[in-house]
Amino acid sequence: MALKVFDLQCEAQHIFEGWFSSHEDYDSQQEKGLLTCPVCGNAKISKMLSAPHLNVSHLKKAKQAQTVSPVPVTEAAASLTDKDLAKIQATVMQQLRAYVKQTEDVGDQFTSEARRIHYGEAKDRAIRGNATPEQRQALREEGIEVLPIPDFLDDNQLQ
């Protein structure tokens, strides 16, 4: 099955990709409120304009005589293989997981503890825990920056 990849944007202007089985699948998930921004958790998502993928390989032979200078690519980027990119991705994931492990899990007390830290009532430290999208929005409105952690970065969620 071919997937549709859409460029999406939340109300806070974060841009990310969404993969769907069809346009109807996107519409259905949007209507059910299942789409949220992976950066801030905002549920007001819109589809951005994106270039379609066109299979024009058959045109290459006809246009071989006409050449265009490619966009410059640095030597380092041009020499990266799929294996190199996979190693980089694995290293980044390990570093992100290590960072998450260094945070204190405060569970359902996340919003109250985040406020206590913000207002100087508790020791300043990195914490993680549970918060609804509404609670995260309320914290942001108070000037308290929060970021949802995807389950795949939190080893406690994987057990």
Rank of each mutant, 00 (worst) to 15 (best):
Y119R: 04
T103M: 14
M93I: 04
M93N: 04
A98K: 05
Q64P: 02
A122W: 00
A78F: 00
D82R: 09
V92A: 12
G107F: 01
Q95M: 13
V71C: 12
K60I: 03
I117P: 12
E113K: 14
N42W: 08
K87M: 04
F110T: 03
A51Y: 09
S57A: 13
C40T: 01
K61R: 11
V39K: 14
V92S: 07
L54M: 09
C37H: 08
L35R: 04
A122K: 00
T67V: 10
K47S: 15
S57F: 07
I88R: 07
A65W: 11
P52G: 14
A76T: 04
T67G: 09
G107M: 06
H53S: 15
L80P: 03
T91Y: 10
A77V: 02
M93Y: 07
D82W: 01
V92L: 12
Q102D: 14
A122H: 03
P52Y: 01
A86Y: 01
R125N: 08
G41Y: 04
L96H: 11
T111H: 03
S50I: 00
V106S: 06
D105Y: 03
L35E: 07
A77P: 00
T81A: 13
Q109N: 07
P38M: 08
K101F: 02
V56W: 05
V39P: 00
C37M: 11
T74M: 14
T81S: 06
H58F: 08
P38D: 03
K123T: 08
R125G: 03
K83F: 07
D124R: 06
R97D: 10
L59F: 14
S57P: 00
L49K: 02
L85A: 04
Q94V: 04
V73M: 07
K101E: 10
K63W: 12
A76E: 15
E121H: 02
K101L: 13
E121M: 05
G120M: 09
D105T: 01
V39A: 09
V106C: 10
A43C: 13
A77G: 05
E104A: 08
S112E: 09
A76S: 03
P70G: 14
A90M: 10
T74N: 13
H118Y: 06
I88N: 11
A98L: 15
P52L: 15
K60Y: 15
P38L: 03
V68K: 01
A122D: 10
V71I: 06
A78V: 00
T111M: 08
L96S: 12
Y119D: 09
R115T: 05
D108R: 06
H58I: 01
M48Q: 12
C40W: 09
K61T: 13
S50A: 12
P38C: 12
P52M: 04
A43L: 02
K123L: 03
E75C: 12
Q95C: 12
C40D: 11
A114C: 05
Q64K: 04
D108I: 00
K60W: 05
Q64M: 11
K47V: 10
Q102G: 03
R116C: 08
R115A: 04
C37V: 02
A98P: 01
